[in-house]
Design a protein around this nucleic acid. Structure first.
Lengths: 256, 256
DNA sequence: GGCCTTATTTGATCTAGGTCAAATAATTGG
DNA sequence: CCAATTATTTGACCTAGATCAAATAAGGCC
């Protein structure tokens, strides 16, 4: 498989996650015209509960976790939003306490649903962008269901790290460094593990020489292929991981 | 909350599941014009894998399970499709072995993606129908993530039965009968349990007097409110279950 | 730089749910 | 209606991951 095919496949499914929208903002650019910018700091929430106002949001920069609170103690992470993602009320489950939690400083574009729909009608580019976004999110949600329903804890963690590497990794030789915009608890709740268990799995991966920590929100992936071998190849997803070959074509090389 | 609101809320989120499309087929009617009808019997599969042809499907009658095979032994159910649902390749995760498995005799409408897109462009009704369908499915997927990530086995089963009651229940006095178009294994894999565990939970619910079997694919729900109390109220979803009041407004009464 | 706070890790223990094998029920096909 | 087949249930047992408590390690802030 050629590298260009790999890139194409990846672009098809992975919302760009490098922290800004420069690569794919054609759709967002038009949205920025009609939207209000909301700045969030880590820990801030946007309420998306059932009784929410009908607002549409688009992520301009930063990362959020869509979470539902089933009770005071039970918080479930549903999805991750990264730059370029669009959040529309109709696509959210009708749960009372639903919120998007900023895990890092974010810039969010906010607009009324009516205005957004009008924009979609006017601009074919926005309409297409938005339809694609919706489809991608749906595919991601379904992949996430597969992860939750079909993978063990260790496999989930491995798959998460491989995905992060491909979305946001930076290559230094054979090592991939990832600045992870999530706390361990964020990751744990996204993978439906508890933080203790995640930490244990993480330690195991470290002792196997697959990963290394470098500060709290940064990890070094020492053996991406080894990680990728830990979960079913069929879930290598968009990446088209050829497990016997260095699969780093997608990653920005430090030296570039 | 009034009954009419309840109905509205439900219609907003639940694809009609009664086994035919008479209630909401306005969108489907136009689709039938351009589509080929495919008849499936229980156990038949439609291949939706990554290398699939670019085809769009719409369910006219019957029920399917979208499933991914991670290996020969590991089959993961991702979503349920019921009459009215539309299946488009772009919304599916890029997994190699993905298929829609008929759990009951089905009529499926099949068409090329290009023809479908053209139809959407031409007909505002189809476009709207399809957009709504997509949004509903996305909401359902997210609800399912909450179920998988946040609920215990027993809670999942209770929530599934309540949902089936609301989607397809038939009321006889205070008892709700549901013809379930899925085998126990189907249900188990949809709830990410194994059949043994599901059976055990089911037996527990029977011994608590909440449900009763009446043949292999039919269950009687003796105490819908009791079932609904077994999982977090916030997940009562679309139903707007007022747990202290008979919530049967939505259900077709035998005597009608 | 050193204290304070908060996040992460680790150990010890427990349990929901998985696994495997065997026993029953339903269905199907004659 | 009965044998054969297949689906479900139940029992006995066992692990992955949860829970709780305590120890560390990172950051933050003066």
């Amino acid at each position: 498989m050629t590298n260009s095919f790999r890139q194409k496949a990846a672009r098809q499914v992975i919302p760009q996650g490098a922290g800004d929208t420069s690569g794919q903002s054609n759709g967002l650019r038009a949205i920025e015209e009609i939207a209000t910018v909301v700045r969030l700091k880590r820990g801030d929430k946007i309420d998306l509960g059932r009784d929410r106002a009908k607002l549409v949001y688009a992520v301009r920069s930063g990362f959020l976790i869509l979470q539902a609170d089933l009770s005071t103690e039970r918080h479930v992470a549903i999805a991750l939003y990264s730059p370029g993602n669009i959040v529309r009320p109709a696509e959210l489950p009708p749960v009372r306490s639903l919120a998007a939690l900023a895990t890092a400083p974010c810039q969010i574009l906010r607009m009324g649903e009516v205005a957004f729909d009008r924009l979609c009608e006017q601009s074919a580019e926005v309409r297409l962008y938005c339809a694609r976004e919706t489809a991608l999110q749906s595919a991601c949600d379904k992949s996430h269901i597969v992860l939750l329903a079909g993978l063990s804890g260790e496999e989930r963690v491995a798959s998460f790290f491989v995905e992060m590497a491909y979305r946001m990794g930076r290559r230094h030789g054979s090592i991939v460094t990832v600045e992870i915009p999530f706390s361990r608890s964020d990751i744990a709740s996204f993978l439906a593990l508890n933080p203790d268990t995640l930490s244990r799995i993480f330690s195991r991966l470290k002792s196997l020489g697959l990963v290394k920590t470098a500060g709290r929100r940064s990890i070094e992936i020492l053996d991406l292929q080894g990680l990728a071998k830990m979960f079913p190849a069929d879930l290598a997803r968009d990446f088209d991981l050829d497990i016997n070959r260095p699969p780093l074509g997608l990653l920005a090389d430090e030296k570039q």
